[in-house]
Computed example of a mutant assay.
Amino acid sequence: MKAIRADFKALFEQYEAEFLVDLKAVLRVPSVRGVKTYQAPFGIGPKRALETVLSIATRMGFRTGQVGDCVGWAEYGPDESQAPTYFGILGHLDVVDVEDDWHYLPFDLTQVDNFLYGRGVLDNKGPLLSTLFALYLIKTQKIIFKHRVRIIFGTDEESGSQDIPLYLQQEAAPYAGFTPDCKFPAVYGERGLLDVQLSLPITDGSEPQITAIDGQFAKSYLPDHARLLLADGTVKIYQGKKAPSNAPEMADNVLPKLVADASQLTGETGQFYQWLNAKIGNQSTGENLGINFEDAASGALQLAF
């Protein structure tokens, strides 16, 4: 990666305090998807985050707009009459909900040893606001663009991106663009996502062997604890290490442990868990299912359950 230009580094340092104030304001909005309500199709939190960022962009002097109460944009460069198409920078302001495993306040900005902590610092409020701020610094230098540059603020990425079709109903798609997301600030492509639910009818009456399976489960991460309750009174508790679902190699996933124990049950219930244990188990690349594909650009397939 090339070194940051000295003049832009010095320019950012002049505005660094302002950036951190704005980032803190955005992080303090708990923009977890909620119940649809008036003018907030994905809940109050995502809508508040969108309004907060658009207020910042307006203060910076950008042209701004909002579509469907769920997608906003800020742009710089010639207006639409001079440049009908635009270069897009797409990110999102919604975040995954938090649990009680944070060392710092999740919906705030904390600085420790030159690191920033808070829900959304990496995914995706921090990178998205950094992009807005970079465009603002370019604007302060009165640098002229030949093409429109539009930063698009989504609010439903963590729950399936139902906001983007609403945006595209009213706005043209960009002719090109990138996503400032997570660890490296420019993402040019991502692997596709396939969400599969397996169901098996139990016809032999063996299902009551399991009284309950509980824990904190979500699609966005691999869980670090779970509990299996059996009809004979046996209680099995599993502890592991949580990790994002797109980094299964970092987890000590408790579900394979639960599945291994459940595979000892009898009848069709036991057979179902035996299949899960044999075909998936601790694998995260799908060898036993015959789906362990990979390529140079996106790496190996990732499998999580």
Results as ranks from 00 to 15, higher is better:
M1D: 13
A3M: 08
I4E: 14
F8R: 14
F12K: 00
F12V: 02
Q14E: 14
Q14R: 13
A17D: 14
A17L: 13
D22S: 11
K24H: 12
A25S: 15
V29H: 01
K36I: 02
T37V: 12
Q39H: 12
P41K: 07
K47F: 04
R48H: 14
A57T: 05
A57L: 06
T64Y: 02
Q66D: 12
E75P: 09
E75C: 06
E75D: 12
P78Q: 00
E80P: 04
S81F: 07
Q82H: 09
P84R: 01
T85R: 14
Y86D: 03
G88Q: 01
G91A: 10
D94K: 08
D101E: 14
W102R: 06
F107W: 08
T110S: 14
Q111T: 15
D113Y: 02
L116G: 04
G118C: 06
G118F: 05
G120T: 04
G120H: 02
L122T: 14
D123I: 02
D123N: 13
N124L: 07
N124V: 00
G126A: 06
L132S: 01
F133N: 06
L135D: 00
K139F: 03
I144D: 00
K146M: 03
H147V: 03
R148M: 03
I151Q: 03
I151W: 01
I151F: 02
I152S: 04
I152N: 01
G154V: 02
T155S: 13
D156Y: 08
D156C: 12
E158R: 01
G160Y: 04
S161Y: 05
I164M: 11
I164E: 00
P165V: 00
Q170D: 13
A172V: 10
A173P: 08
P180M: 00
D181C: 06
K183G: 14
E190N: 07
G192A: 10
L194S: 14
L194R: 10
Q197I: 13
L200R: 15
P201R: 11
I202E: 02
T203L: 11
D204K: 10
P208M: 09
G215W: 09
Q216W: 06
F217M: 04
A218E: 11
S220I: 05
L222H: 06
H225L: 04
A226H: 08
L228R: 05
L230K: 11
A231L: 14
T234K: 11
V235R: 11
V235T: 11
K236Q: 11
K236C: 03
K236N: 09
G240F: 06
A243G: 09
A243W: 02
N246S: 12
A251H: 04
D252V: 09
V254S: 08
V254L: 09
P256I: 07
K257S: 08
S263F: 01
Q264M: 12
E268S: 07
T269C: 11
G270S: 10
Q271M: 05
F272C: 03
A278E: 14
A278W: 09
K279I: 08
I280R: 01
N282F: 15
N282G: 08
N288V: 07
F293T: 12
E294T: 11
D295M: 04
S298F: 15
G299V: 01
A300W: 01
Q302K: 15
L303A: 03
F305Y: 10
